[in-house]
Design a protein around this nucleic acid. Structure first.
Length: 403
DNA sequence: TGGTCCCGCCAAGCC
DNA sequence: GGCTTGGCGGGACCA
């Protein structure tokens, strides 16, 4: 049965009843990691990654083909999100256009250490400059509308929070400063530069953005925090939870159980010593916000103050062990297909299902004749080749030859 | 109903 | 000019 365009484009259509979770960034990231977390991986091409992450379907009508091409673009867009976050924590490093080198989880402790040092250095610089330059701190709120060069929302990458940037700062800088990667780095710094174990979503957004922004900007930033959190959750660096008192969404730092910390060497495993009972009595970040008015120098100095307070007041959450991990839904090491995986291949690790599928010759003879147009035949061939490649790589099987 | 986050438009940057 | 990259926010889904 050929799927129609709307069947694919519209997830609620009758043929596909995926839940949102099946399409989540976290799941895509988990699949990405499953696919590439191997010793023999050196360079990762984004095209190849997009091809392998369940974007191919056996499609044999024009609309479906069109739909899948659109979907491929969407998946690719998500891959950019994932690689940006992974790069921020050291798992990947950009080599060239479309090319990333795989550093693996072993690189994460070093990256976190660097972020910590960077964050602490930034704070020191910021405090120094602030004391030398007490008068002027730019309110980056206005930055949204004009070309002013204040360090925008995401804060500190470029030296620090609350420093006036040169008026020569380019639009490229402006864009970069808002990047998901930078936001990730600053988000991680919130944890590694303090003893905070649990930070609420609201506080994260305020710390990264500064208080006093309008709700629209804040909402956008919160969306991005969700994106970041989903990827970091897949890495098991954080977990999403709720503040015990308010039940507001919050993020708990799990950290790494790397060699440097306790010798386990399993970077995907949660870092036990900082774990806490789910929903236990945890001090949510409770900054003294008495000075958090919306004065001109509000945002960045507030951020600074908050960060300093986090350290000074040692806003650490009490660690209670055990009874944890109930919502680590994505911890299976196995590959899970996204919504556009082949129908018969809905699960991974199920060798029976895997083995039933690929009679390439049959598929070829069944579907190819429908393409009278050479371009479509080429496209079909391309997809089939990609599918074979994926099948060989992921399922570890050697597909039959298509004649 | 508030929280979550998928989706894809579209602009910047690059080749 | 085409392609890659990624900021951004609408709005659908979920609990």
């Amino acid at each position: 049965m050929a799927l129609s365009y709307s069947d694919i484009i519209n997830p609620s259509s009758k043929h596909h009843t995926y839940s949102r979770k099946q399409k989540s960034l976290g799941l895509l990231c988990t699949n990405f990691l499953t696919l590439y977390n191997r010793d023999d991986i050196d360079v990762i091409g984004l095209d190849e990654a997009a091809s392998k992450l369940g974007v191919y379907l056996f499609i044999y009508d024009f609309y479906s083909l069109l739909a899948i091409m659109i979907k491929k673009r969407v998946e690719r867009r998500r891959i950019y999100d994932i690689v940006n976050v992974l790069e921020s924590v050291g798992v990947l490093a950009r080599k060239a256009k479309n090319k990333y080198s795989w550093k693996g989880f072993a690189a994460v402790p070093k990256a976190l250490q660097e972020l910590k040092e960077e964050g602490l250095r930034d704070n020191v610089n910021a405090i120094d400059k602030q004391s030398n330059n007490s008068a002027k701190v730019v309110d980056d709120d206005e930055d949204e509308d004009d070309d002013s060069d204040s360090n925008p929302n995401t804060g500190s990458q470029n030296e620090n929070y609350g420093i006036i940037k040169s008026t020569a700062a380019s639009r490229a800088d402006h864009r970069r400063e808002k990047s998901l990667g930078l936001l990730t780095r600053n988000f991680v710094k919130l944890f590694v530069c303090s003893n905070a174990n649990l930070i609420s979503l609201d506080e994260s957004a305020k710390l990264l953005l500064g208080d006093g922004h309008n709700s629209s900007i804040m909402r956008t930033k919160v969306r991005r925090l969700y994106d970041i959190a989903n990827v970091l959750s897949s890495l098991k660096l954080i977990e999403k939870t709720h503040a015990a008192d308010t039940r507001k969404p919050a993020f708990r730092w799990l950290g790494l159980r790397g060699k440097s910390e306790n010798g386990s060497g399993d970077p995907l495993a949660p870092f036990e010593s900082r774990k806490r009972t789910f929903g236990a009595d945890v001090t949510n970040i409770c900054f003294k916000r008495s000075t958090l008015d919306s004065s001109v120098d509000g945002d960045k100095s507030q951020t600074l103050k908050m960060q300093k307070q986090m350290k000074d007041e040692n806003i650490v959450t009490v660690v209670e062990r055990g009874n944890f991990g109930q919502d680590s839904q994505q911890n299976s090491g196995s590959f899970q297909f996204g919504p556009f995986a082949p129908v018969s291949m809905a699960k991974v690790g199920n060798s029976e299902e895997v083995t039933q599928i690929h009679d390439w010759e049959g598929l070829s003879s069944t579907f190819r004749p429908q393409y009278h147009n050479q371009a479509l035949r080429d496209l079909f061939f391309h997809y089939t080749e990609a599918w074979k490649s994926w099948y060989t790589e992921v399922a570890g099987k050697k597909p039959l030859q298509i004649s």
